[in-house]
Design a protein around this nucleic acid. Structure first.
Length: 435
RNA sequence: GGACGGAUGGCCGAGUGGCUUAAGGCGCUGGUUUGCUAAACCAGUGUACUCGCAAGGGUACCGAGGGUUCGAAUCCCUCUCCGUCCGCCA
């Protein structure tokens, strides 16, 4: 969320910056400015009425001891009228503010100047590549063929249990989900300095609003209809519970200094409402998948440096797993609504002959911090400022499994396990079929 | 699921309708005194909104939301969270 004061103070500046996003309708900005004025007027009125009522109220006690019955009655009527007037003015403030906030919640973040313009995916800029495409002396299979060939991926039974877009894994591939999570967490904790955290997989709508999934993307979220009164949603990513750890908090100078960096492993649940028919084969787009997520709370002055570090930490996992990938800088047409700047890591999938997103690393600047009220003070008496939040996948585990299967496949359909993962796989070097 | 008890500033804690502009203490910051440190003393110490060029005002906030009243931290209702016990349970 942007600050409507900033928008009102520099309407044309924001119009220009936000118009870099294709499809942004700037009419909403004029509505915001109009509401802002109405809000200020209404607040001014309420406060003047309050002041008057307080002044009169202080005189009441004396009056009730010494005044005549008639004076008392008059004062009572006057106060009652003031109370009513305050109530009315308050109601207007609330109504206008409600409208204003609901508009603000829908306005996307301002893209950083370094974000290239573009209409969509094809306009993203490749920043660098790491490694080379593996070459095969045979035609590489895709992960579904490989996994089913090993007898370790089972989409039919998953469909029986839950429906489309779920998977059942067995044996070494089931173990590899666990191994990858442990390997990634260990690396981020030991080598990159993140603090490991285990969080709830159900969150409330306040948390989802704080990180920006609500209200705009409600159709992507799984709501748990536990009862009328409860407000439970399955987490779409650990970003939500982890970022909201600091909800409504002011970090003081006595707190361990910024940055605060966390990593968490959770399943992620997504409706994939808008992607019917897309990526229906395999592990690429499921309703449930595992992910290790990195979340950072940063001083505004160094959040872009932190973004580079974050990308590096995610890349490091791919390097250790010996997976060829490229780094893409997303353009204004492909970047998410919350992010100011975003890099995607795209891993090479020989079975599909294309790169696929395996991590998305974003700087949200103050966009989430303003929604979730996350602030810090540099000095004890200083003014609280919004800090910057960042997060990135480190990495999506299901897609990592896909990449391992496809890039490290051998001619007979078995899979070579990269060295760093072997300790987590009981020393196994190759995944072989048990069939 | 049942019963009872709680929720007040950074922390502890007083407060049963107007003397609260939230006492008092701790902590913290600045100052005075002072070989150093400590102590003592003095002053300050939240958040949001709002008016103002500024200095500096004003308004709201005692878990949340409603209600009663001229007036609510205080009385009433609903909810949330925490604690203790009982039942059920991985």
């Amino acid at each position: 969320m942007l600050d409507f004061r900033d928008v009102g103070a520099d309407l044309e500046g924001y119009r220009a910056k936000l118009s870099r996003r294709p499809g942004f309708d700037d009419a909403v900005l004029d509505a915001v400015t109009a509401l802002w004025t109405r809000r200020s007027d209404a607040i001014g009125r309420t406060q003047r009425l309050q002041e008057e009522k307080n002044t009169q109220g202080k005189a009441m006690k004396v009056l009730f001891q010494k005044g005549t019955d008639e004076e008392k009655a008059q004062a009572r009527v006057a106060q009652r009228e003031l109370s009513q007037a305050i109530k009315d003015a308050d109601a207007e403030v609330l109504a206008v503010e409600g409208e204003l906030v609901s508009l603000m919640l829908e306005i996307p973040n301002v893209p950083h100047p370094s974000v290239p313009e573009g209409d969509g995916e094809d306009d993203n800029k490749e920043v660098r590549q790491w490694g080379t495409k593996p070459s095969f002396t045979f035609t590489p299979k895709d992960h579904v063929t490989l996994g089913e060939g090993l007898g370790m991926l089972d989409f039919e039974r998953a469909a029986k249990l839950a429906g489309a877009r779920f998977v059942v894994e067995y044996d070494d591939l089931a173990r590899m989900e666990r191994a990858l999570a442990a390997f990634m967490l260990d690396t981020h904790v030991r080598e990159h300095g993140y603090r490991e955290v285990a969080v709830p997989y159900l969150v409330n709508s306040t948390a989802l609003t704080g990180t920006g999934q609500l209200p705009k993307f409600e159709e992507d979220q799984f709501r748990v209809p536990f009862s009328e009164a409860t407000d439970y949603w399955l987490v779409p990513t650990a970003e939500v519970p982890v970022t909201n750890l600091y909800h409504d908090q002011i970090l003081g100078p006595e707190d361990p200094s910024l940055p605060h960096a966390y990593c968490a492993h959770t399943p992620c649940f997504r409706k994939e409402a808008g992607s019917a028919g897309r990526d229906t084969r395999g592990l690429i787009r499921l309703h449930q998948f595992n992910k290790v997520e990195l979340v950072r709370f940063e001083h505004p002055d160094r959040s872009y440096q932190a973004l580079d570090e974050l990308v590096d930490h995610a890349e490091n996992i791919l390097k250790k797993l010996e997976l060829h990938y490229r780094v893409m800088l997303l353009c204004t047409g492909d970047i998410s609504s919350n992010a100011a700047k975003c890099y995607d890591l795209e891993v090479w999938l020989p079975g599909q002959n294309r790169y696929r997103e395996i991590s998305s690393c974003s700087n949200f600047e103050a966009f989430q911090a303003r929604r979730a009220k996350i602030r810090f003070k540099e000095e004890k008496k200083g003014k609280p400022r919004l800090l910057h939040t960042l997060n990135g996948s480190g990495l999506a585990i299901g897609r990592t499994l896909v990449a391992l299967l496809e890039q490290h496949q051998l001619a007979d359909g078995s899979i070579r396990i990269p060295k760093v993962l072997r300790p987590y796989m009981g020393g196994t070097e190759v995944v072989n079929s048990r069939l």
